[in-house]
């Protein structure tokens, strides 16, 4: 039967802009890079609330949730998203990535909350894509 090798299945990603900042260039660039890497990318659009992101991540059954935050509100927004995912039993097998402006002193705490990787300015596309390939959850 033409069942796919689970190893080769297409990685699905949600690229999410959450909160009030309107800077989506980074999100667009990463969405395109993910597409070119062979991933399926769902882009959330701007100014989404944590609830909306959770709804999209659950319904689309994404392997990777990439959140872009440049407003500095990450310590408020990320826990809400994690909480929402937990509510739908979706936290355990979703890889959460964070991009944008995240000060060093916040990183440890965010990782403890469940963020799998943080990619700030200067992170290379190759590095990010490689990280996704290696860390996308087994299902």
């Amino acid at each position: 039967m033409s069942t796919q090798d689970p190893e080769e299945r297409t990685v699905r990603c949600l690229v999410a802009k959450v909160g009030l900042d309107g800077h989506d260039r980074g999100a667009h660039v990463i969405a395109r890079a993910f597409r070119d890497a062979g991933f399926e990318v769902i882009y959330s659009g701007l100014h989404k609330s944590p609830d909306e992101i959770v709804q999209a991540a659950v319904q689309e059954d994404v392997d990777v949730l990439g959140i872009s935050i440049l407003s500095g509100a990450h310590n408020t927004l990320v826990p809400k998203i994690v909480e929402g995912l937990e509510q739908y039993d979706a936290f355990e097998d979703t890889l959460i990535l964070l991009g944008g402006i995240i000060p060093d002193e916040d990183r440890e705490g965010l990782k403890e909350m469940g963020v799998g990787g943080i990619f700030g300015p200067g992170a290379s596309m190759e590095e990010t894509i490689e990280f996704v390939r290696e860390n996308a959850p087994e299902r």
């Binding site: 597409r35 062979g38 991933f39 399926e40 769902i42 959330s44 659009g45 319904q59």
Partner: peptide, 25 residues
Amino acid sequence: SGGAVLGDRIRMASNVGDMDVFFRS
């Protein structure tokens, strides 16, 4: 590449946060 950007979801603005609308790309 086999990859794709699925953009239809952005237009579903009237039903965000409503889990009784199950939208799948």
